[in-house]
């Protein structure tokens, strides 16, 4: 299995946009190497702005660039952009509906030894709550590139979440990517696993292991958390009667919460949620942390078995 971090897909997507769309500009806050905007900077230096360690200033500057007709991609680690510059994103960008794209790198606990301060676990909640915000969490590097290019094609604010670690590349070039339209990766009729981001690979592994036990699990790639593909969720609820969500993020306010909001309104079925359970992370290797915080295929599988036990 080829391994590649989703942040690489972002870097490649920006390069392609640099070539095809002269209005695309890129801003970073002293992290150009690790966010991969450095690739764009080297090709298109006149369309790249290093804002220094000044995330709030970066968002405001991007707002101005958008007002001037540019398509800015602002980029830094998720904690510093979604957290530090949240008010600027809310009031200056989202309230005005400005065409600013936000690349949040190093999402999730898999950031590893840097520890809790650098492990963004709240961006889904923080961005999902903003009216008009589009929120995309690509599952692998191939999808990350498509998502980056697609983000430039819509008008309005958009947050893209990327991860640091190299993770399996399991989607294909030819797979469709439409913002707001979930992809079904595996068919099944007993239970549905809905996930976003690189943890989807664990969800697929869980699907295989469940099959060995005679359980047919559907696996849905919910790459767009906002606008959420309610149709896919409700169809899965009707056809399989039980849902598991999986994300490398706080369960509260995250994908699990978003899916549950849809289900309680229209089709209440039992739900189990895999994710970070109301705690901060810590230093450790990505593997140790996934193990300790319950983000493995095994954890998703156990959640599926639990939810099946609750299914009427």
């Amino acid at each position: 299995m080829k391994m590649k971090p989703t942040r690489d897909g972002y870097g490649e997507g920006l390069l392609e946009l640099g070539r095809t769309n002269p209005d695309v500009v890129v801003l970073d806050a002293d992290l150009a190497k690790s966010t991969r905007t450095e690739w764009f900077m080297k090709q298109y230096p006149e369309r790249f702005f290093d804002m220094g360690i000044a995330e709030q200033d970066m968002l405001g500057t991007a707002a101005g660039l958008a007002l001037g007709g540019k398509i800015p991609f602002v980029t830094t680690y998720g904690v510093f952009v979604a957290g530090r510059a949240w008010d600027q994103i809310r009031t200056t960008v989202a309230y005005a509906g400005l065409n600013v794209k936000i690349g949040g790198a190093h999402g999730g606990i898999s950031v590893g030894p840097d520890g809790a301060t650098h492990q963004a676990l709240e961006e889904i909640a923080l961005m999902r709550v903003l009216p008009g915000m589009t929120l995309i969490i690509p599952a692998d590097a191939v999808e990350a590139k498509k998502a980056t290019i697609a983000a430039a094609g819509i008008n309005g604010p958009c947050y893209l979440r990327f991860a640091r670690e190299a993770t399996p590349v399991f989607t294909r070039e030819e797979d469709p990517f439409v913002i707001g339209k979930a992809n079904t990766l595996r068919e099944g009729s007993d239970v549905t696993i809905i996930a976003c981001g690189p943890i989807l690979y664990e969800a697929l592994l869980a699907g295989e292991r469940l099959q060995e036990k005679g359980i047919e699990a559907r696996v849905i790639n919910m790459h767009t958390v906002k606008p959420l593909d309610e149709e896919a969720i409700l169809k899965a609820a009707s056809e399989t009667g039980a849902i598991v969500t999986a994300e490398e993020h706080q369960i509260m306010g995250g994908l699990g919460g978003a899916v549950a909001e849809v289900l309680v309104k229209h089709k209440p079925v039992p739900v189990e949620m895999v994710g970070i359970n109301d705690t901060f992370g810590e230093s450790g290797t990505p593997e140790e942390l996934a193990e300790k915080y319950g983000l493995r295929a095994r954890d998703i599988m156990q959640a599926a078995e639990r939810v099946l036990g609750r299914k009427k």
């Binding site: 510093f80 809790a116 650098h118 810590e282 450790g284």
Partner: peptide, 23 residues
């Protein structure tokens, strides 16, 4: 994993640290 000396200082982990930082 499990160290009091977090990658970025955590005052809850180690007595003597006066703040948690990293941002």
């Amino acid at each position: 994993m499990g160290s009091r000396l977090q990658g970025h200082p955590s005052m809850k982990a180690l007595p003597g640290l006066e703040s948690s930082s990293g941002s």
